[in-house]
Structures are given as C-alpha cells and as structure tokens.
Computed example of a mutant assay.
Amino acid sequence: MPLVPGSLPEESREPLADYLAAGRVLVVAAGHAPDPLAEGPYEYVRPGRATDGTWTWDLAWEQWVRRRGCAPPEEFVRHVEARGFVPPPGTNG
C-alpha cells in the first residue's frame, strides 16, 4: 500500500480510523516500531495485525488514517463504506 499523507478525504478519516481501531487484534508485538512516515525522530506505531473477519490490516493503519490522512487500499475503503463504517459484532478491539 502506498503511504501517501493527505490522500484520504478529511470527512472519511475519523469514521475509517474508528473502524480500524475496532478490529479484533490477531497479533501484537511488545513495544513500538519507528513510524516510516514520521516527521520527527520520536514517532512510533504499534506493530501487529487486526481483522474484521474479512480483511486483515496492520495496526498502524489506524494511526496513518487518523493522523496523516493516508488512504488504505480502495477495495478496503469500499468494503468499510458498504458496512456503513460499522464493524461486525465481536470485533471491537
């Protein structure tokens, strides 16, 4: 996925980031990893993966969407929009 800050419309950021945050965590590593999009030396992301039962994603997607406006793959965005930005039952974090 190309990480392009500002590529996601402002009005989509919060609902999409909330959906990502509600995913069921599959695996998470202890600690943090350097954020490849960091504007400073002390910005980190949580390494791990989450799911909504259909898609899996890096935990960092939430941060990249919410803070930087990076658009996830278009197919994933369509999937979330089709669900009305409501995660399936049992996936909430």
Rank of each mutant, 00 (worst) to 15 (best):
M1G: 14
P2M: 13
V4E: 09
P5V: 01
G6E: 02
S7T: 03
L8P: 02
L8M: 10
E11M: 08
E11D: 13
S12K: 15
P15M: 06
A17C: 09
Y19T: 03
L20I: 10
L20A: 04
L20M: 05
A21V: 05
G23M: 01
R24P: 08
V25I: 12
V28Q: 14
V28M: 13
A30Q: 15
G31D: 07
G31I: 02
H32I: 10
H32S: 07
H32M: 05
H32N: 11
A33P: 11
P34C: 07
P36N: 13
P36L: 08
A38G: 14
A38E: 09
A38K: 14
A38L: 13
P41A: 13
E43H: 06
V45H: 02
R46Q: 15
R46G: 05
R46D: 09
P47Q: 03
G48H: 04
A50E: 12
A50I: 03
A50P: 15
T51Y: 02
T51K: 06
G53I: 04
G53E: 11
G53N: 02
T54Y: 14
T56M: 09
D58K: 01
D58N: 12
A60W: 03
E62C: 11
E62W: 01
W64K: 05
V65G: 05
R66V: 01
R66I: 06
R66C: 08
R67V: 13
R67A: 11
C70L: 00
C70P: 02
A71P: 08
A71F: 03
P73W: 02
P73Q: 07
E74A: 14
E75M: 01
E75Q: 06
F76L: 15
H79M: 09
E81P: 07
E81Q: 12
E81C: 02
A82R: 08
R83S: 01
G84Y: 01
G84M: 03
G84N: 06
F85E: 09
V86Y: 03
V86A: 13
P87E: 04
P87Q: 04
P88T: 03
G90Y: 05
G90F: 08
T91C: 15
T91K: 07
T91I: 07
